[in-house]
Design a protein around this nucleic acid. Structure first.
Ligand code: FES
Ligand code: FES
Lengths: 144, 144
DNA sequence: AATAAAAAGGATAAAAAGGTCTAAAAATCT
DNA sequence: AGATTTTTAGACCTTTTTATCCTTTTTATT
């Protein structure tokens, strides 16, 4: 469904959010350890998220990654996925045709139409605040 | 969502089904041309489908690929996906955790639970007969 | 029996995804 | 100012996916 990079990106963002709620900035090593991902690769992905204004970074001692509190409520899964995997999952044909359209639909187009819309709406409406809340409460996990 | 191999596999199966309805056996070159896929790669994928008893193959002159008529109504998308991509899409964690379970759910587990069930049921209930019907009627397409 | 047509099998190549490493840049602290 | 900590940037490596090619096997036809 998502690329590995995107999976790590979502997990990292949720962890950063959970710590930003407590006014804690976190470094790449801590993030990678907590979400159980390869640190250098994860660093690359976080750079993309910084460029896309999903998360903020601060260099130097006591630096790290953080998300301003208000933005935690604004960032949805869609934003993260778009920043890393692009728009493909939402717009491209399930069977790999060059264009997905009502005019030249593939055989499964109609069948997948509503489920894709639901997926989109789910991802649009699920914000990082909600996701990090369960994590803080110990009701959800980011590794194993 | 699916691998390229799986996309080609589904498209090829639908085309073979559309021709088997007319008692026509089709060769790899014809299939690849019709679904606009690389022929040698598609041939490899069809071998997997033969091994998994999704389609039948006949060697020698006038040979090719076909699907017994009754089986056209039994094969669902799930069968093809399982044969090529395996069970991952149905059972593995959306965020890439080692196990997807209710006991140790990732932060998006609950959100994705119902949509994944819907996806599964959709794929279970969509048979190749239905998909090839639209194609025969010119209502759906397998390339461009 | 010989020939030709078609899939099956195996070896190889190219491209993309996934992952590592090191040096540079920026910021803080002493 | 210098040392230290941390992100950033880019080059590099490895594995997996995608794709090609050539040989072998099977089967129908002549
Ligand atoms: S054309 Fe295939 S999903 Fe729309
Ligand atoms: S644990 Fe992540 S989807 Fe179930």
């Amino acid at each position: 469904m998502f690329s590995k990079a995107c999976e790590y990106g979502i997990r990292a963002t949720i962890y950063i959010a959970s710590q930003s709620r407590k006014e804690r900035r976190v470094g790449i090593k801590e993030i990678a350890a907590f979400i159980d991902s390869p640190a250098p690769f994860t660093a690359k992905i976080l750079q993309q998220l910084v460029k896309n204004r999903i998360i903020d970074s601060v260099k130097g001692p006591n630096g790290g990654f953080e998300i301003p509190k208000d933005r935690i409520f604004q960032i949805c899964i869609t934003d993260i996925v778009r920043a890393i995997d692009g728009n493909e999952i939402f717009s491209s044909c399930v069977l790999g045709l060059d264009n997905c359209s009502e005019a030249m639909p593939c055989p499964v187009h109609a069948e997948f139409r509503s489920i894709r819309a639901e997926l989109k709406s789910l991802m649009d409406n699920t914000c990082v605040a909600t996701l990090s809340e369960d994590l803080v409460k110990g009701k959800s996990f980011l590794k194993v």
